[in-house]
């Protein structure tokens, strides 16, 4: 299992990275933490003529609290986000969800933005970004743009990112004080990609936000289920979310099972989030 040959580029600035990405548009791939890309290369399931290693670009490794959102730079590793005080304070659902992503050694190197750019429908972080209505910042030869999660994820490992674009930042909306939240996941083993995963935030204004992974070709927000959850009808929320999902069968779970689990996990996540919200209100 050895990768095919490639040309290796190490831009030192974002501009340089974008320049090479657009020069080799379509033939070049960004290498961030490599925790998803390199296995695919080793299996020769994919190959690219050029790899653009962004690890030597200095100003991409940050976690910043901004107005309304937490900004995660392209080189912020899962592990730093997991351990960051800002994340714990402003968007505690993010470190919670990160516990379900692989294992500590994988998270030490894997990046939050890489997880998002990879757009695996069973991955936790895209579901979370979707649930919270977050966005990504893309920079390419035609400039900088912000894409909402829902427009960004297009399908299985497919995003709205252009081949010459660099995902420079992911933006996770802050959870206001008094929110409750939960991440529930069912996987064959700890650390595996989700069979089904559900992110839930119960906001102080009474609304509930949900994001589901493993149940569609993209992470999705079950809007009707959110409404039912806000009205306190957990079972109905689960049922509606299941009705909105369109999973496939695979080795680890059948489509029927996945759909049923969407229902159970939505119920559990909402219940857990609401309990925490109540706890927060009291505490």
């Amino acid at each position: 299992m050895k990768p095919a040959a490639f040309g290796y580029l190490t831009p030192r600035t974002r501009e340089e990275a974008i320049e090479v990405l657009s020069r080799y548009a379509g033939d070049a791939k960004v290498l961030a933490g490599g925790q998803s890309l390199v296995p695919l290369l080793n299996f020769r399931l994919t190959s690219f003529r050029y790899l653009v290693d962004i690890n030597r670009i200095p100003d991409l490794d940050y976690i910043r609290s901004e107005q309304g959102y937490l900004a995660i730079g392209a080189l912020a590793r899962h592990r730093s986000v997991e351990q960051s005080a800002e994340a714990a304070r402003e968007c505690p659902l993010l470190p919670e969800a990160l516990q379900f992503v692989g294992h500590p050694v994988i998270r030490q190197r894997g990046t939050v933005c890489g997880s998002i750019a990879h757009a695996d429908p069973s991955a936790e972080l895209p579901a979370l970004l979707t649930a919270l209505g977050g966005s990504v910042v893309l920079e390419g030869s035609s400039g900088r743009r912000v894409a909402d999660a829902e427009e960004y994820f297009l399908g299985y490992l497919m995003t709205a990112q252009q081949p010459d674009e660099l995902l420079v930042e992911a933006r996770f909306p802050k959870l206001p004080n008094g929110s409750g939240f939960a991440f529930e996941e069912l996987a064959r083993r700890h650390g595996d990609f989700a069979i089904v995963g559900v992110a839930c935030a119960a906001l102080p204004d009474g609304s509930v936000r949900l994001g589901v992974c493993g149940a569609n070709s993209v992470p999705f927000r079950p809007l009707k289920a959110e409404t039912a959850a806000a009205q306190g009808d957990l079972q109905e929320a689960g049922r509606l979310a299941a009705a909105d999902s369109d999973p496939d069968s695979d080795l680890h779970a059948t489509a029927e099972y996945r759909r049923a689990m969407v229902s159970k996990l939505v119920e559990r996540a909402v219940r857990h989030a609401l309990e925490r919200k109540e706890g927060n209100a009291r505490g």
Binding site: Q35, N42, R109
Partner: peptide
């Protein structure tokens, strides 16, 4: 395994544990 799952190849890279099968020597 050469795909990041088994951990046998784990090293400390700049002080942090990393799978050496998921990195290139040039890095």
């Amino acid at each position: 395994c050469e795909h990041g799952v088994c951990g046998a190849c784990t090293i400390l890279f700049n002080g942090q544990p990393a799978r050496s099968c998921l990195m290139f020597a040039v890095q």
